[in-house]
Write a protein that binds this DNA or RNA. Structure first.
Length: 467
RNA sequence: GGCGGGUUGGCGGAGAGGUUACGCAGCGGAUUGCAAAUCCGUGUAGACCGGUUCGAUUCCGGUACCCGCCUCCA
């Protein structure tokens, strides 16, 4: 069997991955808070952990992997969005979840085994909080329930900080009812305008971290194999998850391997609305960038390194996929190439896997290329179609194509190619790709197609010859 | 202030203490009315200063610069 190695954030080393139960490999990944469209930064963990999911299924069997990715549908950002727009919370979260599913499907991500919604797990959270109170790891204050950080000796093990370090220059929220500035909220009261659930501590809502502890426990048990997410979640979110889960159920280990993907920049800068480089997955899809292209760009950098979304990478990935799809067109998948599997098994080294795909393409091994690419969620039938020739319904393009063919036939006879060249140059300028075969001409719209420029291509007239 | 990551050829981006990464672009060739696409071939590297070593881009130490987290964030 293939040996998988993964870099565990907890130990900061690459370790051989040995599942607790090979018949049921269990992975939990932090999913979206559903108040807005998924942006490119959200897309990275979706694609990275989907690729790991595919590898685990390949190695352990598709029926022996359980992948949980939660949906956070109770959160103060959602409440704020509801207050701004006047829309019901449920309408916002349902709509955002639908968008998220559309976008992740476009990126070729398989649906996780379970996608629990936080609001369906409130009783589990209350149970956890009650257990923490009973064991002295939490306390009630001013209507809140807070986790007592100093009660957990291993606090800081994941992020490599000690509680004493954190006090120094840290910007921790100081609330008068906290025993210690590091303590964080497990449960907070809701006024009548906010969503709330009845609890032993009054009507309220959960703090940020408890939902993941509750959902992971409900679906994966008190010990499971892998917990993943973006690097920005490492502290405090994941540190707090560990503290809650381990203290509430000391007999469990919670997650054994922690994986964190690095962050994403856009054109070299941190993505932000004020810089005007905030890119959602939907923006790209609407601009005609295929989800498969986004996926290849994201997998082109190892998950533990920062990456940069650039238009140049987009264009390169598009070229690569066109070539691969053309080469593998009409072929049935064969067996995955061992080099691709080995690259993925080595801490999910997707750039090395992609290099191996290039080698398969170079060797003309289409069936292996298809099967191996599928391990990275690429070249699948579901993601295809975008690379096909120009749509037949483009009457404008069809007309121009007829004109070009006619002009070319004339030119062949007269040996005067000026009109052909004029048409071709105009088409290229309008963003159309022009391919001339021996007798045929193919026009396919490029990504930067300019419809107006196309319409401006004037009827042919005899070129003025210099005297 | 604390914790962590990075610096590779024109660009992107890996692995390995000694032998070609790979891709894109460029260049040369085949092909083409010219191109595109395709195919063949090909040059360029590892921030800086020390150390270990027969040998370091790869290990160790230092310097510079960049980035992330510590506050909602994938």
């Amino acid at each position: 069997m293939t040996t998988i190695r993964l870099t565990n954030s907890l130990t900061r080393r690459k370790e051989v991955f040995v599942p607790l139960d090979p018949a049921n490999v269990r992975m939990y990944v932090c999913g979206p808070t559903v108040y807005d469209r998924a942006h490119l930064g959200n897309a990275r963990p979706v694609v990275v952990f989907d690729t790991l999911f595919r590898l685990l299924r390949h190695v352990h069997g598709a029926d022996h992997v359980t992948y949980v990715r939660n949906i956070t549908d109770v959160d103060d950002k959602i409440n704020a969005r509801a207050a701004e727009t006047g829309r019901p919370i449920r309408a916002i979260t349902d709509e955002t979840i639908r968008w998220f599913h559309e976008d992740t499907a476009a990126l070729g991500a398989l649906p996780p085994t379970h996608e629990p919604r936080a609001t369906d797990h409130i009783p589990g959270m209350i149970d956890l909080i009650a257990a923490l109170l009973a064991r002295g790891h939490a306390y009630e204050a001013a209507g809140h329930v807070l986790f007592r950080v100093r009660s957990f000796g291993e606090y800081g093990a994941l992020s490599g900080r000690s509680p004493d370090d954190m006090i120094a220059g840290a910007r921790v929220e100081v609330a008068p009812w906290k025993e210690d500035p590091l303590d964080f909220v497990l449960w907070k009261p809701s006024d009548p305008s906010l969503p709330g659930w009845d609890s032993p501590w009054g009507r309220g809502r959960p703090g940020w971290h408890i939902e993941c502890s509750a959902m992971a426990r409900a679906l994966l048990g008190e010990s499971f194999d892998i917990h993943g997410g973006g690097l920005d979640l490492l502290f405090p979110h994941h540190e707090n998850e560990i503290a809650q889960s381990r203290c509430a159920h000391p007999e469990g280990r919670f997650a054994r391997v922690w994986l964190h993907n690095e962050m994403l920049l856009v054109e070299g800068r941190k993505m932000s609305k004020s810089l005007g480089n905030f890119v959602t997955v939907r923006d790209l899809l609407d601009r005609g960038v295929p989800g498969e292209v986004v996926r290849l760009v994201l997998l082109g950098t190892h998950y533990r390194s920062p990456t940069d979304w650039t238009d140049r990478k987009r264009a390169e990935a598009e070229t690569t996929l066109r070539r691969w799809r053309a080469a593998a067109s009409g072929l049935a998948p064969g067996a995955p190439d061992p080099a691709v599997v080995a690259a993925l098994a080595d801490d999910l080294n997707t750039p090395a896997a992609i290099a191996a795909l290039h080698a398969l393409h170079g060797a003309g091994n289409g069936p292996a290329l298809l099967a191996s690419a599928a391990l990275l969620g690429l070249l699948t039938p579901e993601l295809g179609g975008w690379e096909e020739a120009a749509p037949a319904d483009s009457t404008l393009l069809a007309t121009l194509r007829e004109r070009l063919i006619a002009a070319r036939q004339d030119a062949r006879r007269t040996r005067d190619f000026a009109e052909v060249d004029r048409l071709k140059a105009a088409l290229l300028a309008a963003g159309v790709e022009v391919r001339m075969g021996r007798d045929d001409v193919e026009l396919r719209p490029g990504p930067a197609l300019d419809e107006d420029a196309l319409r401006r291509i004037a009827p042919g007239r005899r070129p003025e010859h210099a005297p």
